[in-house]
């Protein structure tokens, strides 16, 4: 690998202690993001992709949730984010690593004017004066393609549409020139036409500033459009990862294959859209096994007994599946 990784997560585990037991929302996840690269984390709801993002931001255990990071390393440049104190982490958050969220409608403070909410990180991280921050905020509003930026700066969130609010969120996120932008389902709550605009905007800013994007989505259309590298998660684990073209053309894990098969294809009429049978397993009842075996059409005996590890296959990708373990084929 020529360039050093910008972000490298190793064996990250984030657990939630509930009354019924410990939920391993993120269970030994490893992934890396190189400078200027877009990495997509794909998976169903509840597979731990958002929690992975929150873990990077150091936001697990806030907002009334009871999560805790049980192990692993999150290396950003030359620092381990999990070992930083609150103050050090705060200077990275919103400055070098920024984040946008799924629900633009509720992500902005309803009682503060838009302009002020954009100014806050500028004052906090770039130490701009109030006046300079206001001028920069108005520039940023214009930059995310909203007309009448001066008026919008004085407006309140309820006066703007969801698409506009997500643009404002992007303006806040890019305000301090982050090296990494984490986008957690940024287009899920928006209309399809607006979705395309938001994705275009992210791509444009990425091209202009050479920032990396960690995009979290369940939408394979978004993945195909945005990703350089794809990480597929299932029940808190990475089951497959690889270059986007390779992964779309030659998916290895039965789960990835299922996901791709269940994606509707434009212009192709099908009587029934394929869906993966069964349901995501109850996270409280997971035993050492392949968590996908109950839904897998290739399930073997070994899949029920032991957990496959992520192994490199092909040129770039890796997969965690007994089908690709020679040992298993011999003994299974």
């Amino acid at each position: 690998m020529a360039t050093a990784d910008l972000l490298e997560i190793e064996g990250l585990s984030t657990y939630f202690d509930t009354e019924e037991g410990t939920v391993r929302a993120v269970d030994g996840v490893s992934l890396r993001v190189r400078p200027g690269e877009t990495v997509c984390i794909v998976g169903e709801s509840g597979c731990g992709k958002s929690i992975t993002a929150m873990s990077i931001m150091g936001l697990v255990g806030t907002n009334g949730t009871a999560g805790r990071i049980a192990g692993g390393r999150i290396r950003y440049e030359d620092r381990d984010l999990l070992r930083l104190n609150k103050h050090e982490l705060r200077t990275i958050r919103g400055h070098e690593i920024a984040m946008i969220f799924q629900e633009p409608m509720s992500s902005l403070n309803p009682v503060l004017p838009i302009g002020e909410q954009i100014m806050e990180p500028l004052i906090e991280h770039l130490k701009l004066s109030k006046k300079a921050a206001r001028a920069r905020a108005i520039e940023l509003i214009a930059q995310v393609g909203i007309a009448r930026p001066e008026q919008i700066a004085k407006a309140y969130p309820h006066e703007l549409s969801g698409g506009m609010l997500q643009r404002i969120m992007i303006a806040i996120a890019i305000s301090c020139g982050p090296k990494l932008l984490i986008a957690d389902e940024p287009t899920t709550a928006l209309d399809v036409t607006i979705q395309a605009q938001i994705l275009d905007m992210l791509r444009q800013f990425k091209a202009e500033s050479d920032m990396s994007i960690l995009l979290i989505t369940h939408d394979l259309g978004v993945v195909a459009e945005m990703a350089d590298y794809v990480v597929v998660m299932y029940a808190g684990k990475v089951v497959e990862e690889g270059e986007v073209v390779e992964l779309f053309e030659r998916p290895k894990h039965p789960y990835t294959q299922g996901l791709l098969k269940s994606k509707p294809i434009m212009g192709q009429r099908q009587d029934e859209l394929y869906s993966i049978p069964g349901q995501v397993p109850n996270p409280l009842e997971l035993k050492p096994s392949c968590y996908f075996y109950e839904r897998c059409e290739h399930a073997m005996d070994v899949c029920r007994r032991a957990e496959p590890t992520l192994k490199g296959v092909g040129e770039q990708g890796s997969v965690a599946c007994w089908l690709y373990e020679e040992e298993a084929i011999v003994h299974g």
Partner: peptide, 26 residues
């Protein structure tokens, strides 16, 4: 528990600012 408090934290604001500017007013 609101999303905008998470946003305020994600912006890297001081906890004091999160509590008194963003939370208390609401």
């Amino acid at each position: 528990k609101q999303d905008y408090i998470r946003t305020a934290r994600a912006k890297g604001l001081k906890e004091r600012q999160v509590l008194f500017t963003h939370a208390l007013r609401n």
